[in-house]
Amino acid sequence: MRILLVEDDHLLANTMLGMLRDDHNTVDWLDDGQQALTAITDEHFDLAILDLTLPRVDGLDILKHARRQNVATPIIILTARSDLAEKLQGLDSGADDYLTKPFAMAELKARIRAVTRRASGQADTGIKVGSLTIDPEHCQLRLGDDPLTLPRSEFQILHYLMRHPDQVATRRRLEEQLYGWDHGAESNALEVHIHHLRKRIGKSVIRTVRGVGYLLDSREAEQVGQP
């Protein structure tokens, strides 16, 4: 994969270059905003990692300019500022994801995988958590080898939980997945769906955080379907 790294801190950039190259990527590095602007619009990259604070041209301006020029390259922004407004501004300006410094390389790599997978149009295909695999095209769940077609609501809930394993999805978040913002569903509809899902895949896979929401436990998901 050809990656463009735009980072003006040489120490950090050199470290990242080394680690990204270890994974057999071709990485080009620029430390100047103006050069980055030209490179991102004129050349093809599979991914760009863009620091927001850059000499000459600001990272956000590069991002906006690139998107105006219809550059479809997935872009992950690196920011040293933790304030939410800037992150949101970055995402609104067309970034695919953002990462706050300092970060773990494993996290950056996970984001790179997610972003490039989404960009290549396979975003929703074959998500696998432990022994659970789901196929969004056919609303199918596979437990080990048995395919099982799920009702739409149950599928949407499971799909969301599997996209965010080991993270708590609030009830509101799940209800939004089901009904959009203007949901008028009776309040225990979500519980009913979760109840059915648990019957299918095992009680312990979906954990309840009382009063908050649900979580898909990836370790429990490993055990599913095994005797």
């Binding site: 680690m19 410094k101 300092p102």
Partner: peptide
């Protein structure tokens, strides 16, 4: 200060990871 502190910390962490 946020920027100046976080960037070297990021470099430090990645180097240590390696």
């Amino acid at each position: 200060a946020a920027h100046e502190l976080r960037t070297p910390l990021a470099a430090l962490r990645l180097n240590l990871e390696r």
